[in-house]
């Protein structure tokens, strides 16, 4: 690979779920006034891409599929330092599940490859905070035939010329060290880095930059039945609020002193669950030997 490194970071604009409320009667989401943010996990991916660019040169493209208002999130990504931004937006994408999303995004990535050069690394976040599936990254990798590297905590080594790459991957009970080759799709683990703040020059350039906006046709999607609701094998049939537990907590009256309260609490625990008492005493007894 002799061309400069090209990374594409997939970012999603999501509602700030901390501020979502549920209509108590109809159980529908009240989106009124809920601000949107860049999916927080995607920022780790973006920062990692920017760091690679700092080290090896090249370009960082950010890609988002979403409504026209998602342009704000893309512009924000430019303010952090991304070089160009692409918004994939079409009403046919509404209601996409992960399969349909990864289809549309992979088509946009192919278009990016045609217009700006093939991506060497596609980054996604570990997962989104609204969909929360961690499936879109693997979906894109599979569709484009990229090596799939999920839950990456660190990029140890990259030889942009030979295309060799060594990464650390979070696995159950430990860290896998993997060696592989570009091109790859990386889903970045949270906490792996901290997002930078763009300089005033970057911020000014970002404020004036043109975001590339593509619809389905612009990325070569001909079969619209593969998009949106129609292209989604999963069907959400019912949305409902978690039921309240029928009985609330039995309250232990606070005593005059913390010591007295502590004994009341222990009595209540052991009263409810003699098994716990037995187990604790057993472990304590074993520890005595």
């Amino acid at each position: 690979m002799n061309q400069p490194l090209h990374s594409v970071v997939c970012i999603k604009q999501v509602p700030d779920s901390a501020q979502i409320r549920v209509h108590p009667v109809t159980n529908t989401i009240m989106r009124q006034g809920v601000p949107t943010i860049i999916n927080p996990y995607d920022l780790f991916a973006l920062e990692e891409a920017l760091r690679l660019r700092d080290r090896f040169g090249g370009k960082v493209t950010v890609l988002c599929m979403g409504p026209m208002t998602a342009e704000d999130s893309l512009r924000k990504a430019l303010t952090f330092g991304a070089d160009r931004a692409v918004l994939l937006s079409d009403r046919y994408f509404a209601g996409s599940d992960t399969l349909a999303t990864s289809y549309a995004l992979s088509m946009a990535l192919l278009q990016i490859a045609r217009e700006f050069g093939a991506p060497d690394i596609i980054f996604t976040g570990k997962q989104t905070i609204d969909g929360d599936t961690a499936q879109v990254g693997p979906g894109i990798a599979k569709r484009l035939g990229y090596n799939q590297l999920t839950y990456i905590s660190k990029i140890r080594d990259l030889d942009p010329d030979g295309g060799a790459l060594v990464v650390e991957r979070r696995a159950e009970g430990g860290t896998q060290v993997l060696q592989t080759k570009l091109p790859v799709l990386i889903t970045m683990l949270e906490g792996s880095n901290e997002m930078r703040r763009g300089s005033i020059e970057t911020a000014l350039a970002a404020a004036r930059a043109q975001v590339t906006i593509w619809n389905a046709a612009a990325v070569g999607i001909e079969d619209l039945t593969r998009c949106g609701l129609r292209g989604s094998p999963t069907i959400v049939k019912k949305v409902f609020a978690p039921g309240a537990r029928s009985e609330k907590a039995a309250m232990i009256g606070a005593e005059a002193t913390p010591e007295a309260s502590a004994h009341a609490v222990i009595d209540a625990i052991f009263g409810r669950m003699p098994a716990i008492e037995a187990q604790l005493f057993e472990t304590a007894a074993q520890a005595a030997y």
Partner: peptide, 17 residues
């Protein structure tokens, strides 16, 4: 599964696949 940051649950089917 939980949805929307856990504030709701939804039931999902894959009927035709």
């Amino acid at each position: 599964r939980p949805t929307f940051g856990g504030s709701l649950l939804c039931t999902i089917f894959t009927l035709n696949f």
